[in-house]
Design a protein around this nucleic acid. Structure first.
Length: 514
RNA sequence: CGGGGCGUAGCUCAGCUUGGUAGAGCGCCUGGUUUGGGACCAGGAGGCCGCAAGUUCAAAUCUUGUCGCCCCGACCA
């Protein structure tokens, strides 16, 4: 049992924090609500970026960068947008600091700006402004730009990865000639997110549309992918917005069409954030610590040598080299030998394209310590190599996901073998999460049934519902649950709204959400 | 912004009621014995007791103020 991690059943929130601390993914910073993403956590973000970026490029997008600071007046140009973000904007009002004559050692802001600047909570406005200058004709369309950046939303209450004042994300912003194209783009990117969540993070998601009260401020329609966490709460893992002509009208993004008439473009925006790391933790990890999906694992396997004497160490070292040559090739083994010391943690590239590594833990500490070390970091596999194993030409192969052990003959080992094991693990993680998700989608025919489910079980509740701000607000008030989405897979026909009893064509998913 | 709690070693906290030499466990450093799932022994480093004022011969401890943090709500990718 991990002694530094509180079990999920005792205190789920504390467990979440403990897992992050134990795996050294992140730390609290001196600035309230802002976190430090440590190397172990940032490596996972890099893996997420690498894979998603490729998917963006494959769907025709290019990267660019827009400023962190946005003129305050920009925010005011789109009515709903201001309303949605005004309450959580950090505002820059001065351009320098000067010494306070009354208080020695204290600085105070000086030189007030003519117009305050807002630290971007999202970039629709800045990008809309630029697109207005870049678009003249239908020949300039579509514009398909993504940016990787940080944004800031001054949240009241924050949680590591799930909600921090500053967070890293990507925001795609596209402009199109027709509403059909914009809609197609919006759904295409939602599909990219869903595929990424499932194929890379092993998190099954539900695709759907947001209700009026949950949609992005300034969007015509918001689509989302919703995931279910182990405590039965839902987490929005990604959103894709069809912004219609709201921003093109606010920022006057016009083009001369094929019909010789000036018209406004149709825009979309879509984003995922470092919240995905929170989703990954909550979906897969266990009471022993982090479990990282193999596709984003910075270290795919850790090798733990076991020995008592220098003679044994030499013997074990020789055997480990055999395993390494089989896994990463003789060239990489030789390259590492040249630059690395014969102590500490030796790191070998398993796959340079994905920056995934294999490590050998030569640190001068006890094998038990090392087991916990790598286990808590969620490394998919560990290989334990001691004198007994060397004599048998094998090693102990430990899997993080099910904590199983097996003997593996060194002759069986190759890069392809390890890839196969990683793929198996990915599938097992996805299946496990999908099973949990499916078992926790329940039907409710009445409001009383739904309340009962939220009180006793949690998870998603699927029900006929006629979306309305008033009904949703009341339900949230009484159950804490919100409409997570109107799933794409509608049964057709009509049913009685769970809340009002009215006839409705829509089935929705309710859940208590993060 | 409303309700509750807490600021003492890197971390978790004791000490405060009843003022009198600054404490424990974990972690860290040294040496030795160890090493197949979180070792043991010995030695050591580490503190403006959040900050400021007051009471007092004397304040971590009492009083007042102030700043900060955490938890619960409203807001949220």
């Amino acid at each position: 049992m991990a002694k530094n991690i509180k079990p999920r059943a005792q205190d789920y929130n504390q467990w979440y924090i403990d897992v992050i601390k134990a795996a050294q993914l992140a730390d609290y910073s001196p600035v309230k609500g802002c976190m430090v993403i440590r190397p172990e956590g940032y490596a996972i973000w890099e893996a997420i970026q690498r894979d998603l970026d490729r998917r963006f490029k494959e769907t025709g997008h290019v990267n660019a960068y827009f400023p962190l600071l946005i003129p305050q007046s920009f925010l005011a140009k789109e009515a709903q947008h201001v309303e949605g973000f005004a309450m959580e904007c950090a505002v820059v009002t001065h351009s320098r600091l000067e010494k306070d004559p009354n208080k020695p050692g204290v600085l105070k802001p000086a030189s007030p700006l003519e117009e305050p600047l807002v630290i971007r909570p999202t970039s629709e406005t800045m990008i809309g402004h630029m697109y207005a200058q870049w678009v003249q004709s239908y020949r300039d369309l579509p514009i398909l730009i993504n940016q990787w950046c940080n944004v800031m939303r001054w949240e009241m209450r924050t949680r590591l990865f799930l909600r921090t004042a500053e967070f890293l994300w990507q925001e795609g912003h596209t402009a199109h000639e027709t509403p059909e194209e914009a809609q197609e783009e919006t759904l295409r990117m939602l599909d990219v997110y869903a595929a990424f969540a499932e194929e890379v993070l092993a998190i099954p998601v539900v695709k759907g549309e947001k209700t009026e009260s949950e949609k992005f401020p300034g969007a015509d329609t918001t689509y989302c992918i919703e995931a279910l966490m182990q405590d039965g709460k839902a987490l929005q893992a990604g959103t894709s917005h069809n912004l219609g002509q709201n921003f093109s009208k606010a920022f006057d993004i016009k083009y001369l069409g094929r019909d010789q008439k000036q018209q406004h473009v149709w825009t979309t925006s879509w984003g995922v954030s470092t919240r995905l790391i929170g989703a990954m933790i909550m979906a897969h990890s266990d009471d022993e610590g982090l479990v990282v999906p193999p596709k984003v694992a910075p270290v795919v396997t850790a090798i733990v040598p076991i020995f008592k004497s220098p003679e044994e160490a030499a013997k074990v070292r020789e055997f480990i080299e055999k395993i390494l040559v089989a896994l990463v090739g003789a060239e990489e083994v030789a390259a590492v030998a040249k630059r690395a010391k014969a102590e500490g943690i030796a790191s070998y590239f398993f796959d340079k394209a994905s920056d995934q590594r294999i490590v050998v833990d030569w640190r001068d500490s006890r094998p038990g310590d090392k087991q916990y070390h790598w286990e808590q970091r969620g490394v998919p596999f560990r290989m334990e190599v001691g004198p007994r194993d060397v004599d048998g030409g094998a090693f102990v192969f430990k899997q993080r996901l099910d904590r199983s052990k097996a003997m593996v003959q060194v002759g069986e080992v190759s890069a392809a073998w390890l890839r196969g094991k990683l793929d198996e693990m990915h599938k097992a993680m996805f299946d496990k999460a999908a099973k949990f998700r499916d078992e926790n989608i329940r039907r409710a025919e009445t409001y009383a049934q739904m309340k009962e489910i939220f009180e006793t079980k949690g998870g998603f509740v699927r029900a006929w519902f006629k979306p309305s701000r008033e009904a949703e607000a009341k339900i949230k008030d009484e159950t804490k649950a919100t409409v997570r989405c109107i799933p794409f897979d509608q049964p057709g026909g009509t049913g009685k709204c769970i809340f009002t009893g009215e006839e409705t064509e829509t089935e929705v998913l309710f859940a208590v959400a993060y």
